[in-house]
Design a binder for these strands. Structure first.
Lengths: 215, 215
DNA sequence: CGCGGCCTGGGGTGAATCACCCATGCCAGG
DNA sequence: CCTGGCATGGGTGATTCACCCCAGGCCGCG
């Protein structure tokens, strides 16, 4: 099976170079080129390629928005981002837009080919330095805090906060900790004052942000 | 610079095969082998390798726990998981443990070598099918719902729910929607009944799970 | 045309919460 | 030794919550 590929980059020279590189590969056919977002969308509709190799910097619209538009209308079309941008910002936004691969232009030619083949197979190729960013985000996002200072809460206050965040009432917490409900209320007041929160629901959101509880 | 590598797998035959494969590579030295978690930890301390190639299925302890132990004591040591497991479960747990690479045993030898070189360089190598899982988790985790049915809530109820989730009181919501506080209370009762929730804090957690609000 | 669902309001009750006030021990650090 | 932070309690009053009751108006659907 041959991969039918659409090339999107606003620089004709770059497109030529990519065409040279990609056409030397077997089972890979470049069915079209586009230098602008409008052309890209039109050609996707016209040619129904398997894969779009997308530059982010386009003259008339962002490659991110273009990717989003393509994935919304033709979800089966894989999009691989090929760009000079290696920062978190563009990378994450491109993933959200539905990209199946992300390769910086400084990457080795073989890596681009790997990304194209991988994305065409329905998988995802991530350039290692960007995979690292994603994994960091994953690990951090899943459980950000716990060991964090919790803004100067005492041990007992943190303990009470954990129960409060679960939605327990003062009485329930009091029984769990075998102290008076009034003491629980006292702790809660101190907690809310220290964290500058003003309601139980704010406490829940705070606890989720800090990873104390799972939503 | 030569990569100093420690091989951890409980099958001697597999270790031999890997040694054959890896030793044919330049700039790669296998400094030791371990068949059990205890040996692995001991050898890491003794040999201070750059990288540990870790099987998950070990006789005395999980490769995941072993990875965690290694990364806690020697964060500079890169760990690449090489395993038969390709499901989300092991993959995500291995990432949490601190792995810099994840390669299924069915992968091509070149992919293992790429993973080793990438991880040794401080980056992350993810096998494409697993990179796909991670990206899916990333995209889903960031904004999971919104368009979902919300379990049969009416439009007005969803509107009230949005305010409730923010922690607004009945009176505040009433003023925002220019209706009576009693009506807000009524909507809230219906919402809680439909969603089988029993407190405002439960509503907040529900709203965060559904992506209605951000924590 | 009636039926049911939705939105809108009102009343009531008991419990819980909130936001203040107060005090007592205990223990560490200046 | 004594000041301050921490944990532990009590009290009070206003407010809110959670859960019941009720009903009228509107709109679509059979």
């Amino acid at each position: 099976m041959t991969i039918r590929l659409l090339l999107v980059d606003d620089h004709a020279v770059v497109r030529s170079g990519l065409r040279m590189l990609l056409e030397s590969e077997p089972n890979l056919e470049i069915v079209g080129e586009a230098g602008a977002a409008q052309d890209a969308l039109r050609l996707v509709e016209l040619l129904q390629p398997d894969l779009v190799l997308m530059d982010i910097g386009l003259p008339d619209a962002s490659g991110i928005d273009t990717t989003l538009a393509i994935k919304q209308r033709w979800p089966a079309v894989a999009v691989v981002a090929l760009t000079i941008h290696e920062d978190e910002e563009y990378f994450f936004r491109m993933l959200h837009a539905g990209a199946s691969g992300y390769v910086p232009k400084r990457a080795a030619p073989e890596e681009l080919l790997t990304a194209v083949r991988t994305a065409a197979a329905g998988e995802v190729y991530l350039y290692p330095s960007l995979a690292k960013l994603l994994v960091q985000d994953f690990v951090a996002g899943a459980r950000p805090a716990q060991a964090e200072a919790l803004s100067g809460l005492t041990e007992r206050e943190q303990e009470v906060l954990a129960y409060l965040a679960e939605g327990s009432s003062n009485l329930e917490i009091a029984e769990a900790l075998t102290i008076s409900p009034k003491t629980v209320a006292r702790h809660r007041e101190n907690i809310m004052a220290k964290l500058n929160l003003h309601s139980r629901t704010d406490l829940v959101k705070y606890a989720i942000r800090k990873g104390i509880i799972q939503p």
